[in-house]
Simulated scan of single mutants.
Amino acid sequence: MIAALLLLGVASAGAQEQAKPAAEAIVQTAPADNDGGRLICKTEKETGSRVKRNKVCKTKQEWDDMRLNTNKQLNEYSKQTPANPLPSS
């Protein structure tokens, strides 16, 4: 009986790993003269749901600005020193 419970635990853990969120990009072009005006729609899984998805449409320029802003924030965060650093040995 214990072995059966262990097998069920391993099987459910494997199923959860396969259900990782992945963004699916659907590219639609809008009538625009410049490349930054191209409309790009992405379907993203909603956090906490296995089924529900949200469609987010932005221009190429907006996606690029959001990506650059996120990278900038991550770089700034990684440069910060921790509040209570561990003592060096």
Results as ranks from 00 to 15, higher is better:
M1C: 10
A3H: 11
L5D: 11
L5I: 08
L6I: 06
L6Y: 09
V10W: 03
S12D: 02
A13I: 09
G14M: 08
A15N: 01
A15L: 13
E17M: 09
Q18G: 06
K20I: 08
K20T: 10
A23M: 04
E24W: 03
I26C: 04
I26W: 01
V27H: 03
Q28F: 10
T29H: 06
P31Y: 14
P31G: 15
A32K: 15
A32R: 14
A32Q: 15
D33F: 05
D33Y: 03
N34M: 13
D35Q: 13
G36D: 15
G37F: 09
R38Y: 10
R38H: 07
L39V: 12
T43L: 01
T43R: 13
E44V: 15
E44C: 08
K45S: 01
E46Q: 13
S49I: 01
S49P: 03
R50C: 03
V51S: 14
V56Q: 00
V56M: 08
K58Q: 06
T59P: 04
T59K: 04
K60D: 04
W63I: 05
D64G: 00
D65L: 05
R67P: 04
R67V: 11
N69L: 09
N71K: 03
N71L: 03
K72C: 07
Q73G: 03
L74N: 10
L74D: 05
E76D: 10
E76I: 08
E76H: 05
Y77L: 12
Q80H: 00
Q80W: 02
T81C: 11
P82T: 14
A83Q: 14
N84K: 07
P85W: 11
L86T: 12
S89Y: 13
S89P: 15
